[in-house]
């Protein structure tokens, strides 16, 4: 075990243990401060190749920020991030775009292009980067839409979709070029149980059949538990627990107990950092 991961509350598995020699994403000494708020405080993380790694944590802890660091959308203040052996911070724009062509990214808010129909949204990455005959594009796009259950919605505009449908279209778009690394930012939000089941199966299938490395940010532990190989729990700028979902579910540390039990009190504060409640409402003696 690496002595640098010195969090006393960490669970029985180090965040970096699974296949440390074969990591697809390797993060070392990451430090990020946004608007004076420390999001990451010297953290290390390895994401195993060909596995599904779930990142969980209270909202606003920086899960999306972490994904933005990994994909080079946001530069870290400190630390080193390697994706597939390449240092993200050192890449120029062309190299970064080359890297991103092999990454599928599902945005937290779908981010469909509002000018284009569902079909054109899914076809967009193909049209931009490959000179394919129209018929082949059609086949690929319809296959992807079929796999998320929305082939019939190909002609709709994004404004005509519900949140869950938009999420599934965005998923189809993210996987349309068969990426090596898939990043899902909260893919289950707004999905009905049937769609959820299908999407879980899809994510698992992509991994099993194509060997895709997946990073999955989600809040639904029950869903995560069914597909993730490894779970990392972020809170307060640190990775506070990590391990196989079944191990974490046993709740051996207070972090996992609180987070998966959904309790307001515990090491993860439910409240955003604030002044004393009573003082702010003017009840306390020293308030004014």
């Amino acid at each position: 075990m690496n002595p640098r991961v010195n969090d006393p509350t960490r669970s029985n598995q180090d965040a970096r243990t699974p296949a440390a020699g074969n990591a697809c994403v390797r993060i070392r000494g990451l430090r990020t401060v946004l608007n004076g708020k420390t999001i990451f405080d010297d953290v290390d993380l390895d994401i195993a190749r060909g596995k599904i790694t779930a990142i969980m944590g209270p909202s606003g802890t920086g899960k999306t920020t972490l994904l933005r660091h990994i994909t080079g959308q946001l530069a870290a203040d400190c630390g080193d991030i390697e994706v597939d052996g390449r240092h993200v911070a050192g890449l120029n724009r062309t190299q970064l775009f080359d890297l991103r062509e092999r990454i599928g990214y599902l945005f937290q808010n779908s981010a469909l292009l509002t000018d284009f129909s569902v079909f054109e949204n899914v076809a967009f990455p193909l049209r931009q980067h490959l000179r394919l005959p129209e018929e082949i594009i059609r086949n690929i796009v319809l296959t992807r839409l079929q796999s998320v259950g929305l082939r019939g919605a190909a002609h709709l505009m994004p404004s005509e979709l519900s949140g869950g449908m938009a999420r599934r279209v965005a998923l189809a778009r993210a996987i349309v070029r068969d990426p090596d690394l898939m990043i899902y930012d909260e893919p289950f939000v707004g999905l009905d149980p049937i769609a959820l089941n299908q999407i879980l199966t899809l994510i698992r299938t992509l991994n099993d059949t194509l060997g895709v490395t997946s990073i999955l940010v989600a809040h639904e532990f029950s869903a995560v538990r069914r597909i993730a190989d490894h779970v990392v729990l972020i809170a307060g700028g640190k990775f506070v627990a990590s391990g196989h979902p079944d191990v974490l579910a046993r709740g051996e540390s207070e972090w996992t107990r609180q987070f998966f039990g959904g309790e307001a009190d515990g090491p993860v504060p439910f409240q955003y950092p604030a002044r004393d409640y009573a003082a702010e409402l003017g009840f306390a003696a020293g308030a004014r």
């Binding site: 994909t71 990214y105 945005f107 469909l112 292009l113 990455p125």
Partner: peptide, 18 residues
């Protein structure tokens, strides 16, 4: 502005489109 607000510009960047 709306494309910025709804992450469409970031989505393009992520699809390696400038």
């Amino acid at each position: 502005g709306l494309m910025r607000a709804t992450d469409q510009l970031s989505a393009m960047e992520m699809m390696a489109v400038d």
